[in-house]
């Protein structure tokens, strides 16, 4: 790796990451057996952490309205359910989502900066972000310039994140998508995490959902370790969002176990941990219904988003 200039202020080398060690740790965490009341508590918490997401070219106001309704009414047959954390859409649909979710407590997040590829010039990305904020986005999910990052242009990537964060200010939360599926190794994931945190990301996020593999437990563990080290160094708590590919309640619980045992219970809150998903909610609801009724559930009884 050629690093000529100091890539960003207070830069220090990211620690190396051993893939096999990470996978062993993940396997051990995933083997935790979560039963009974601890399972119900986890499922409800997971629901409250979901960024319910639709990011299709075919998205329309009608589709987004339906999604927002689902966000507010996850499954009315079950009492005491939390609502999801946010609805995540393209900038052009932010206004519709804001209207639908007014007063619900559910945030509206927009993807920005030439999502998903990030292949645009700085001005375009800034315009894209400013537009989303002007439309009412309360959270911005930006993508990093992976091409520049992989070329070693860390200063460029750092500056871009910092500039978008300055547009967001304190009011708008910035989630920085590393698109880990394009980074190749866990070492790169760690370096990108450290860089994004240093540049001001409120959250670091694994994936756009458009590239496979999207979120995985090993990648998430490496990012959580970066957040932990950032906290140890600065005292600041930053958030984590795995996104894409998390479809089952069982997997969601594995993520929560990982957060609990890596960062600690203080991170078990939607303000510091989110799950980007489109179909996860219903699987969790089916599990919760099973815990309540004692019988296994059928998807036909749960409304699609």
């Amino acid at each position: 790796m050629q690093v000529v200039q100091q890539p960003y202020p207070n830069w220090h080398p990211s620690p190396p990451v051993d893939q096999v060690g990470v996978e062993e740790r993940v396997a051990r965490l995933a083997a935790r057996s979560i039963k009974k009341e601890s399972k119900v508590a986890a499922l409800k918490l997971a629901l409250s952490m979901i960024d319910l997401t639709t990011l299709e070219g075919s998205d329309s106001p009608g589709k987004v309205r339906q999604l927002c309704y689902k966000a507010k009414h996850l499954h009315d047959a079950l009492p005491d359910l939390p609502h999801v954390a946010a609805v995540c859409v393209y900038p052009t649909l932010v206004r519709v989502a804001r209207e639908e979710l007014a007063g619900s407590g559910i945030k509206v997040a927009a993807v920005a900066t030439a999502f998903p590829s990030g292949q645009a010039d700085r001005e375009t990305k800034i315009r894209d972000t400013r537009y989303a904020i002007d439309e009412g986005a309360e959270e911005i999910d930006m993508v990093i310039s992976r091409g520049a990052f992989l070329r070693g242009e860390y200063g460029y990537v750092y500056d871009e994140i910092a500039e978008i964060k300055s547009l967001c200010g304190d009011a708008v939360h910035l989630k920085v998508i590393l698109e880990t599926g394009e980074l190749g190794t866990l070492d790169r994931v760690r370096q990108a995490s450290d860089l994004a945190l240093a540049a001001g990301a409120d959250f670091i996020k694994t994936s756009t959902g458009k590239i496979q593999p999207a979120a995985t437990l090993p990648v998430t563990l490496v990012m959580l370790e970066a957040i932990r080290d950032f906290h140890l160094r600065t005292g600041q708590k930053r958030g984590m969002k795995p996104a894409g590919g998390i479809k089952t309640a069982k997997t969601a619980i594995q993520y929560l176990v990982m957060v609990n045992e890596t960062l600690g219970p203080e991170w078990l809150t939607p303000s510091l941990f989110r799950i980007g998903a489109s179909t996860l909610a219903n699987d969790i609801l089916m599990q919760l219904a099973k815990e309540t009724t004692g019988v296994y559930q059928c998807a036909d009884y749960f409304s699609q988003a």
């Binding site: 918490l45 600690g264 219970p265 078990l268 510091l272």
Partner: peptide, 18 residues
């Protein structure tokens, strides 16, 4: 038990799994 009580996060105790 894996966790200490916290102000913001869930105080999550794993139920027995014999």
């Amino acid at each position: 038990t894996t966790s200490v009580a916290s102000s913001t996060g869930l105080n999550w105790t794993y139920a027995p799994a014999p």
